[in-house]
């Protein structure tokens, strides 16, 4: 070691400086979220104070240039698409996790797990491109124009199935081996073990994964802009073109100004609140995961 020559006073000064530096950095990193919420509030304040929060929910339509600020159609489209995707992705994701661990021969299970990890990393704009050129024309053949709530649901399903598969896989892996062995010793079949022992034991982790996936679906923007048609209307049928809350921000931010721009920031705030509520529920379920 070359550093032992230093006197202890210079060493302790070095340590003090180190602590000061890393503490400043840590405060800075943790302040980013506060800064984000602060700026969202600052930018949306003109709309919140003059228009009022209630009108964003109850105005009959979204025509910001004419003074109508109803976000309800977009909010309902976002919720419908996310709920639909979660309904489709949950059985697919959980079944994939079970398949890798309990049914597939090891090499196939390994390949399946690897493809889930890869799929979860495919950028949303690439999934959107594929959705627009593969899924939308397919739906359009039965029910034109094709760009619709259904296309949005299917694309979100492709995006969140790997998330659910990976998180429920982790939840299954974290169970003690004794559970499975005990069930085998009792003469339970593999299916009964899964259905009555392992899945109920892993329920917290699985549900937490589903909530995180729902948060991801709700916050997804690019893929949704590309496939769901972007017409502002309440989703009454699966084949209606709709516009999600996130898509609305992405489409209108470029030219919005004044109270229109401020109301887009309001929808950003709304979105953040929804996503954080879902994530908080997930953390509660998965127990005191890693706070500290």
């Amino acid at each position: 070691m070359t550093l032992s020559h230093r006197s202890s006073s210079s060493r302790s000064r070095r340590d003090t400086r180190l602590v000061a530096a890393v503490a400043t950095a840590a405060l800075g990193s943790s302040a980013i979220f506060v800064l984000i919420v602060g700026f969202l509030l600052k930018e949306s304040w003109p709309a919140l104070s003059t228009i009022g929060p209630a009108r964003f929910l109850f105005d009959p339509a979204w025509r910001p240039t004419e003074g109508l600020f109803g976000l309800a159609p977009m909010l309902s489209a976002s919720l419908a698409a996310s709920v639909g995707a979660v309904i489709l992705a949950t059985p697919l994701g959980v079944a994939s996790a079970i398949f890798c661990r309990h049914y597939a021969p090891p090499p196939i299970g390994w390949i399946h797990r690897w493809s889930m990890a890869l799929l979860s990393g495919v950028p949303s704009v690439v999934i959107g491109l594929w959705g627009l050129t593969a899924i939308v024309p397919l739906i359009g053949r039965f029910e034109p124009p094709g760009a619709s709530l259904l296309a949005g649901i299917l694309i979100l399903t492709v995006m969140i199935t790997p998330t659910i598969a990976l998180t429920s896989g982790a939840a299954l892996d974290s169970l003690p081996d004794a559970y499975g062995r005990g069930a085998v010793a009792l003469g339970l079949s593999r299916e009964a073990t899964l259905a009555h022992v392992l899945l109920p034991a892993a329920r917290g982790g699985v549900v937490a994964g589903i909530l995180l996936a729902a948060a991801r679906a709700l916050g997804e923007t690019m893929a949704i802009v590309m496939v769901s048609g972007n017409v502002v209307q309440a989703p009454l049928s699966l084949f209606d073109p709709v516009r999600m809350l996130t898509a609305n921000i992405a489409l209108e931010m470029a030219y919005a100004s004044g109270s229109h721009r401020a109301s887009l920031f309001v929808s950003g705030l709304m979105l953040t609140a929804l996503v954080i509520a879902l994530a908080a529920a997930a953390w509660r379920l998965s127990g005191d995961r890693c706070h500290g």
Partner: peptide
């Protein structure tokens, strides 16, 4: 967990 479009706004 913050959605990417919110980062864009910010």
């Amino acid at each position: 967990g913050t959605p990417s479009i919110v980062f864009g706004l910010f």
